[in-house]
């Protein structure tokens, strides 16, 4: 996890550090258990195939958690996540090297807060963006100290 950047030091267009993930089927079961999402397409191969899927797929909400993490890792303990959105355009599968990425799109002040909007996304092992999203964070300002 990084040290919280000051809002003044954040530049539009800058990339935040990548976050790499590679889910095992065991992780999908752990996620099912801790989120109480028992939908069988995430751990029962026959069930998944019966649902016209090629195999097991990663929970969208687990990818959502990772796209939250790529932002919270970057913003550190003093930043605050205000908004987070993700769209599951493509399915992702276990045992594929995935990478979560982000770029700062806009920085602005609003209601006394120092904010930054980020574009975030997840790429699969083939480099395809399966899961685009957006985030808004509030950061500390040097001026406010």
């Amino acid at each position: 996890m990084g040290k919280t950047p000051y809002w003044e030091d954040v530049q539009e267009g800058m990339a935040i550090p990548d976050l790499r993930k590679n889910a095992s089927t065991q992780q999908l079961v752990k996620y099912a258990g801790s989120s109480l999402d028992w939908y069988q397409i995430h751990y029962d191969l026959e069930f998944a195939r019966g649902n016209k899927l090629d195999g097991l797929i990663i929970h969208g909400a687990l990818k959502n958690a990772w796209l939250g993490q790529v932002v919270t890792d970057w913003m550190g303990t003093e930043g605050m996540l205000r908004k987070l959105s993700v769209q599951y355009r493509g399915m992702d599968v276990p045992n594929d090297p995935l990478v979560c990425k982000g770029v700062v799109k806009k920085k602005y002040e609003q209601g006394g807060h120092h904010l930054a909007d980020l574009e975030i996304w997840l790429e699969n092992g083939k480099g395809e963006k399966t899961t685009p999203g957006e985030a808004t964070v509030s950061l500390p300002s040097r001026a406010a100290r």
Partner: peptide
């Protein structure tokens, strides 16, 4: 009906 998650939008 079968079900797939399409996405989420959060505000904190």
């Amino acid at each position: 009906l079968r079900k797939l998650d399409g996405g989420s939008q959060w505000e904190y």
